[in-house]
Design a protein around this nucleic acid. Structure first.
Length: 424
RNA sequence: GGAGAAAUGGCAGAGCGGUCUAAUGCGGCAGUCUUGAAAACUGUUGUGGGUUAUACCACCGGGGGUUCGAAUCCCUCUUUCUCCGCCA
C-alpha cells in the first residue's frame, strides 16, 4: 500500500510512475484519495475537539462531586450527554471515511522504479542477459512429462487419484532429486548469509493482508474455512510477516532470511499447454529468500539477490536469461522485478523459475515494519524477495536438457545430494 | 475437547471507577565524575493522528457494552499458563 504522505507530497511523481504500470484512472483515484484524506483530517479534528471538551467536562464533574456540589455536577452531565451524541456521530463518520480511504488505497499498485520499461505485455519485457548454450537434443528426445513416466520418477495420474490434477507424486529417484535440490538451495543460501527459517504453511488473514494477497487475490489461495486459514502460495507470506508490527534497530539491517516450503496455488483459469507436466502445479516446492533492508540499500541488494539466483542456475548448468519486467507485466506490489527463465530444450521454450523483486515500502507500510533511524524516528524499511529457486520447472529443464540414450545425467553439484549420477 | 487462572510501556511489575498526563525496578540513551572504563549521581526514554510550533486526540491483548468519566465493571473473541482427557 502506498503511503498517504507520499501521495500527498509527491502527487505528480506518483502519477507519472503509475502510468508506467498502465494503472487505469490513476488521476481520478489519486484525487479521490487526497480529497478523502483531507475530509478525514477535518473530521478527525472536529471529533478530537469534542472529545477534548467532554474530557474536561468529566474532570470538572469529578471535582464538583468531590466538593459536594451535586446540582452543578448534574447540570454539566446534561451538557456532556449532548456532546456524547455528537461525538458518536462524528466517530461513525470518521470510521466510514477511513474505511473508504483504505478501500481506495489498497486498489493502487506500487509505484514502479523509473528504470522499469514501459510496456503492457510479456513481449515488452527487457532481456538483460542470456547465459549458457542451449543443448542440441538427439532425434527422439522427449518432453519431461514423457521422461517422468519412462523412468517412473514422477506420477501425475497417481496424484489425480489422491488429490486432483496438479498434485504429482514424486517417486524413487524423482523424490530423491526433490530432496537434493531443496538441500542444495538451502545450503547455498545459508552459506550466502541467509538465516534459515521453517515457517508455518498455513497463515491467518492478517498475514495474507500484510504481504498483499488479501484482499482481492483470495481466489489464488486455498482456504481452510473452518479455521479461516490460508495455505501459503509462497514462503514470502509467512517469512515477511515475521516482521509485521516490528520496529527494528537500524543496525539489524539488512535482515536476510531463507526458507523452504511447499507452495499452494489454485491457479483458477489456467489451462492448455502451459499446465502440461511440471509447468504449472497446484502444489510445488520452493526455497525463498527474503530481505528487509534500509531504504538506501535496497536496490544494491536487489542486484545482489539477482546475482545470487543466477549463480545457482550456473552451478546447475542450465541455460537461462534474465528479464527486467515491464510495467504491465509486473506484480501489483513490486517496484522493480527481474524474472529468471531457464531453457527447456524439449519444449523449446523459456520457463520462469524465479522472480526477484524490490517492494520498497509497499509491503512494509501494510506490515508496519519499521526501523529507528539515527534521530530516533521510525522509518519504513524496504522488503525484497526472490525465488531461489522454484523446483518443478528446474526439474523439467534438468530432465529435458540432460537426457541422452543412456538416461538423465545429474549435474555434478547435485550428485553428493542425490547419491546417484544418472536416472536410468 | 473439559475445568480454572491470567494478558499493563524493551523487560519485570504496581494500579481494581475520577490529578493514570500509568508508580517502582531493570535495561537503553545523554550528561557529571574518570587518563579510559566500571560504580555512583543527574536527566531522558512507547506508537500513531494532528499543529509552523504548542495545544489537543487515540491506544493498558482484539472487538463491543455500562458510566458524565474505564487499565479498573460487564459481554465476547484471541492468546498464554495450570490441571484433566486425547495424541505423533
Amino acid at each position: 500500500m502506498l503511503q498517504i504522505i507520499n501521495i500527498r507530497e509527491n502527487k505528480e511523481d506518483v502519477l507519472k510512475r503509475l502510468s508506467i504500470k498502465n494503472f487505469k484512472d490513476a488521476e481520478t483515484i489519486i484525487n479521490d484519495i487526497l480529497e478523502l484524506d483531507n475530509i478525514r483530517k477535518i473530521t478527525q479534528k472536529k471529533g478530537d475537539d469534542i472529545k477534548a471538551e467532554s474530557n474536561s467536562c468529566s474532570k470538572q464533574i469529578g471535582d464538583l462531586m468531590k466538593s459536594g456540589k451535586k446540582l452543578e455536577a448534574d447540570a454539566l452531565k446534561i451538557k456532556t450527554a449532548d456532546l456524547k451524541i455528537t461525538e458518536k456521530l462524528i466517530d461513525d463518520q470518521l470510521n466510514q471515511i477511513e474505511l473508504k480511504l483504505n478501500n481506495l488505497l489498497v486498489t493502487v499498485p506500487n509505484t514502479p522504479n523509473l528504470n522499469v520499461p514501459a510496456g503492457k505485455v510479456p513481449e515488452d519485457n527487457e532481456v538483460i542477459l542470456e547465459h549458457g548454450e542451449k543443448p542440441t537434443l538427439y532425434s527422439n528426445a522427449k518432453p519431461h512429462w514423457e521422461l517422468t513416466s519412462k523412468y517412473d520418477i514422477i506420477d501425475f495420474e497417481l496424484g489425480v487419484k489422491l488429490t486432483g490434477s496438479g498434485f504429482p507424486v514424486y517417486k524413487g529417484k524423482g523424490a530423491r532429486l526433490q530432496r537434493a535440490l531443496i538441500n542444495f538451495f538451502l545450503d547455498r543460501a545459508t552459506s550466502n548469509g541467509y538465516n534459515e527459517v521453517q515457517p508455518p504453511i498455513l497463515v491467518n488473514e492478517e498475514s495474507g493482508y500484510g504481504t498483499g494477497q488479501l484482499p482481492d487475490k483470495e481466489g489464488q489461495m486455498y482456504h481452510a474455512s473452518i479455521d479461516n486459514l490460508y495455505l501459503i502460495p509462497t514462503a514470502e507470506v509467512p517469512i515477511t510477516n515475521i516482521y509485521r508490527d516490528v520496529i527494528l534497530k537500524e543496525t539489524d539491517l539488512p535482515i536476510k532470511n531463507c526458507g523452504y516450503t511447499p507452495c499452494f496455488r489454485r491457479e483458477a483459469g489456467s489451462y492448455g499447454k502451459d499446465v502440461r507436466g511440471l509447468n504449472r502445479l497446484h502444489q510445488f516446492d520452493k526455497v525463498e529468500i527474503v530481505q528487509i533492508t534500509h531504504p538506501n540499500q535496497s536496490y544494491k541488494i536487489l542486484e545482489d539477490m539477482l546475482d545470487y539466483v543466477a549463480s545457482l542456475l550456473k552451478e546447475l548448468g542450465l541455460p537461462f536469461r534474465i528479464l527486467k519486467l515491464c510495467g504491465g507485466d509486473m506484480s501489483f506490489s513490486s517496484a522493480l522485478t527481474y524474472d529468471l527463465e531457464v531453457w527447456s530444450a524439449a519444449q523449446s521454450k523459456w520457463l520462469e523459475v524465479s522472480s526477484v523483486s524490490n517492494f520498497e515500502t509497499f509491503q512494509t507500510n501494510r506490515l508496519k515494519c519499521r526501523y529507528k533511524d539515527a534521530n530516533g524516528k521510525s522509518q519504513l524499511a524496504h522488503s525484497l524477495n526472490g525465488s531461489a529457486l522454484a523446483l518443478p520447472r528446474i526439474v523439467a529443464a534438468l530432465l529435458e536438457n540432460n537426457q541422452s540414450q543412456e538416461g538423465i545425467k545429474i549435474p555434478d553439484v547435485l550428485i553428493p545430494y542425490c547419491g546417484f549420477n544418472i536416472i536410468d
